[in-house]
């Protein structure tokens, strides 16, 4: 290591513990002096570089971080609240959907399901209902809701009351049939369910007729002549508007 190399090395790193450098230093006393001067200079440089640090900087840094974290927490809390609210709204919408959206999309399917659902109440085909037959007056008072009235009761009417038909208020009539009850539904017109004029399954079949105000659906078993029922109904109901 020549003098120039030595100077370069010691100037660029006075604290170097490089063996070659240390060995080179041992060889010549003037190099030791250079090294000593350099480390003195370095000490002065170090003193000079030690600019005073503001006393409160440390606390400021911690405070600022704490505040920032707090803000973040608040933002997160708000986010969580918003998320909870969204879930609640979705839940409400879903329940609404379940309640008001029927599983059946045409009148026939719904009528059949409705009849089966209430079949047990009328299983005796009105055999014991003689004393409780519905009068024309009470039938018409209910029919008034649908802007219609019957001129005649049309046979033995076992049951007449409002019921929900796919979320709509409708009138459910049950007549005594030949072997099993005949169900008549008076349903306001609605877009949700497609109109279907004839429908059936293994046991029951039905017919629908569309009037200006409402659909009239008749459901009975295979022994009934639904044509006649529809015919009688259409002749007997007077729509007021």
């Amino acid at each position: 290591m020549d003098d120039l190399q030595f100077r370069r090395a010691i100037y660029s790193d006075p604290k170097s513990q490089d063996e070659e450098l240390l060995a080179a230093m041992d060889k010549a006393p003037n190099r030791q002096k250079i090294a000593h001067d350099m480390s003195l200079l370095d000490e002065k440089i170090k003193q000079a570089l030690q600019v005073p640090v503001p006393d409160d900087l440390c606390n400021k840094l911690i405070l600022r971080q704490t505040l920032a974290t707090h803000q973040q927490h608040k933002r997160k809390k708000r986010l969580h609240l918003a998320m909870a609210a969204s879930v609640a709204i979705l839940g409400a919408l879903f329940i609404n959907y379940l309640q008001f959206n029927s599983a059946y999309n045409n009148l026939g399917d719904y009528s059949l399901a409705h009849v089966y659902h209430e079949a047990e109440h009328f299983a005796d085909n009105g055999a014991n209902a003689n004393s409780r037959l519905i009068s024309l007056a009470s039938l018409n008072s209910k029919m008034a809701t649908f802007n219609g009235n019957f001129t005649d009761v049309l046979g033995k009417l076992i049951f007449a009351d409002y019921c929900r038909f796919g979320g709509m208020k409708s009138l459910h009539l049950v007549y005594q049939g030949k072997t099993s009850p005949v169900n008549v539904f008076i349903v306001p017109k609605d877009d949700q369910m497609t109109f279907i004029d004839k429908f059936s399954d293994q046991h029951l079949f039905g017919e629908s007729a569309a009037f200006n105000q409402a659909n009239v659906i008749v459901v009975g078993d295979k022994s009934e002549s639904l044509n006649q029922w529809q015919d009688k109904l259409s002749k007997n109901i007077n729509w007021t508007i």
Binding site: L49, V53, P54, L57, L61, Q65, A68, T69
Partner: peptide
């Protein structure tokens, strides 16, 4: 923070700027 402040000071030569730099740095570090 001391070392970092001094380093920042020697980068920009201004106390206030150095302090801001250190604050930004630690916030990013967090």
């Amino acid at each position: 923070h001391g070392d970092l402040y001094r380093y920042a000071y020697w980068l920009c030569h201004e106390k206030q700027v150095a302090e801001d730099l250190v604050q930004e740095t630690f916030l990013r570090a967090w």
